[in-house]
Design a protein around this nucleic acid. Structure first.
Length: 270
DNA sequence: AAATTCTCCTGAAGGC
DNA sequence: TGCCTTCAGGAGAATT
């Protein structure tokens, strides 16, 4: 499932091939993603040059002079580079063609999005109220502590809330809380400032390591070349209920928190 | 205001 | 073998 490391991996992979290149065509085979792909996209984007590709949370932004394409990979999306004449497969919904190469969006579950804005993309409704980037300077344990006072939600739910911090989905929330030794179901308002410092460090560590390994591939995620990530080999608790905690040997347990599967070592995490 | 539930979708897995 | 049910999940929308 694409979380921040998978989106960052995708961004780094496609940027050198797409940067400063003009869009020669946009092909849309399936408009019904999370929101309909705008009717105006092809007309607005064709012949425009992609000046830069940036990331905000799990959103990829393809910036051109007339406007910005906002792409979200949902939970099963991937962007791959293929020769322009390559035949699409069943779930290949949108193509951005740059002469001989094609940037192709595949998204079997269609939870992803392709949107267009002529304005500052950071002012777009989907982006305007996002919290800090976890790998940026505004994110800290102090910030998490400040926004969590008197909150009764589980700390895991808090760090998956994009207003608290962007890019942390279910896999990395579980892993960061394991590294920090904090129970995922502990009330956010009952985590101390010093433990939030450890948690913020753990979030950064997990995300940076996952980026280094090209992200996590459980089912659908592949990078721009169609290759999977490797971080799943490094997972300590996610999906490992019944296995032994790598730190203390206690059996890892699974539970549900806010409709999401959660995993913890009941001995290491309090 | 904050917390919880619902919703979109497809493919995999489990039950019988 | 095959049909039916359940589940997974990002995150906005709706509801409590």
């Amino acid at each position: 499932m694409p979380e921040l490391p998978e989106v960052e991996t995708t961004k780094r992979g496609i940027t050198p091939h797409i940067i400063k290149r003009a869009v020669s065509a946009v092909r849309i085979r399936q408009r019904q993603l999370r929101w309909p792909v705008p009717d105006t996209l092809a007309a607005e984007l064709t012949n425009a040059t992609i000046e830069s590709i940036t990331r905000r949370g799990k959103y990829l932004l393809f910036n051109s002079t007339p406007g910005t394409v906002i792409v979200h990979l949902g939970m099963s999306g991937s962007l791959r580079l293929v020769p322009a004449q390559t035949n699409p497969e069943k779930h290949d919904h949108v193509d951005f063609v740059f002469g001989e190469i094609c940037l192709r969006l595949r998204d079997p579950r269609r939870f992803g999005a392709v949107l267009w804005t002529r304005d500052d993309p950071l002012e777009h409704p989907l982006l305007s109220s996002l919290g800090p980037e976890p790998l940026g300077p505004e994110f800290s344990g102090q910030w998490l502590f400040d926004i969590s006072r008197r909150r009764s939600i589980a700390v895991k739910t808090l760090i998956m809330d994009s207003r608290a911090v962007v890019g942390v989905g279910n896999i990395y929330a579980n892993e960061a809380l394991f590294l920090a030794g904090i129970s995922p179901r502990r009330a956010a308002g009952r985590v101390s400032a010093s433990r939030y410092e450890i948690l913020a460090d753990s979030i950064r560590t997990v995300l940076e390591q996952a980026i280094q390994q090209g992200g996590t591939t459980l089912r659908d995620f592949v990078n721009e070349s169609g290759k999977p990530g490797y971080f799943q080999q490094t997972l300590n608790v996610y999906g490992r209920d019944g296995a032994k905690c790598p730190r203390c040997g206690t059996q890892i347990r699974a539970l549900r928190i806010g409709q999401r599967s959660s995993f913890l070592c009941p001995s290491c995490q309090r």
